[in-house]
């Protein structure tokens, strides 16, 4: 059972930061609780105060900023993203991803900011956002700062965020002309067994740039530059990707995969190759449509 704790419900980010400063090391941000309350129930973490971020206006909402980037508040739930017409227009791959995070109860309660800050190695959004070149906006006692998501995840359950910092928003750059972004996963339980995200850009008849990220396979979601390199320069034709995809799959197979209940490292490397194919084809199809 969950040990007793105080629940603070600040009205603004500055009040939240002041509350955190008062509570010191004994406080944790509470942004949905689908992971936090579980670890507290299991006795793996104990906090005297939970500071509820769900109602903070600064962390709510989904918008497109002046640069055309998609900005998603840290306390926006998976379900809200899944049902957002803005996200559907700007980043359809994220809608598809969110529609299959865990189960509907988790999606209804869990938030994107909570998901990223918890840094569970099997996170769906983390892998996709890594390929999308997103960055996160943080605000803490020392002020505001921005971090690219590549580098935000340090190790399982550890991020570059300091404990006093709140993840205000996730910012995803607008897709360039001819750019497609897709996410594919193999899922046998609540979390993905392996997931692969691909962002690629098409110009003329060729793929001119590709970024590949893989999740649930290594300690933290990672980019696989060699897989991206293998795809760059390939023809923008889904039926002509055999050799580049095989080279990409080989790059995935070099990763330091970690076996778990969903499968051994070998099996995960195999799945990563399978998912690279489907994610590349999906990204290519979106890219051609945007070209």
């Amino acid at each position: 059972m969950i040990p007793p704790f105080a629940l603070a419900r600040p009205a603004s980010v500055s009040e939240a930061i002041a509350t955190f400063a008062d509570a010191g090391q004994d406080a944790a941000w509470y942004a949905g609780g689908t992971e936090l309350l579980q670890v507290m129930k299991m006795g793996l973490a104990r906090f005297g105060t939970l500071i509820d971020l769900k109602g903070l206006p600064e962390l709510r909402g989904i918008a497109v900023d002046a640069s055309g980037a998609l900005v998603i508040g840290g306390a926006v739930t998976h379900r809200e993203i899944e049902r957002s017409s803005i996200v559907g227009r700007e980043l359809p791959g994220l809608v598809g991803l969110e529609a299959h995070v865990a189960n509907v109860r988790v999606r209804n309660q869990g938030t994107i900011g909570g998901n990223l800050c918890f840094a569970e190695p099997h996170s769906d959004p983390a892998t996709f956002l890594l390929a999308c070149d997103a960055h996160v906006e943080l605000w803490g006692a020392g002020g505001a700062r921005e971090l690219p998501i590549d580098g935000f995840f340090l190790e399982p359950f550890v991020t570059a965020r300091t404990p006093d910092e709140i993840l205000l928003a996730i910012v995803i750059p607008k897709a360039a002309a001819g750019e497609g972004r897709a996410y594919e996963k193999a899922k046998f339980r609540e979390r993905p067994a392996v997931s692969v995200a691909v962002r690629l850009r098409v110009a003329g008849d060729a793929i001119v740039e590709a970024v590949v990220a893989v999740g649930s396979m290594t300690d933290i979601p990672v980019r696989v530059p060699e897989a991206g390199t293998a795809l760059a320069g390939a023809p923008a034709d889904p039926s002509a990707l055999g050799a580049p995809l095989a080279a990409g799959a080989e790059a995935m197979a070099e990763l330091d995969a970690v076996g778990d209940l969903d499968g051994s490292a070998d099996f995960k490397r195999h799945l990563a190759g399978v998912l690279l194919r489907s994610a590349t084809r999906a990204a290519l199809s979106e890219a051609i449509a945007r070209a």
Binding site: F188, L241, L245, A246, D262, G263, S264, F267, R277
Partner: peptide, 21 residues
């Protein structure tokens, strides 16, 4: 019959089989 057990049995059926590109 987990996905990995099925996959391993399929690999035994088709030694040397790899991705279809």
């Amino acid at each position: 019959f987990t996905p990995e057990r099925v996959w391993r049995a399929l690999r035994e059926r088709d030694p040397g089989r790899e991705g279809d590109g």
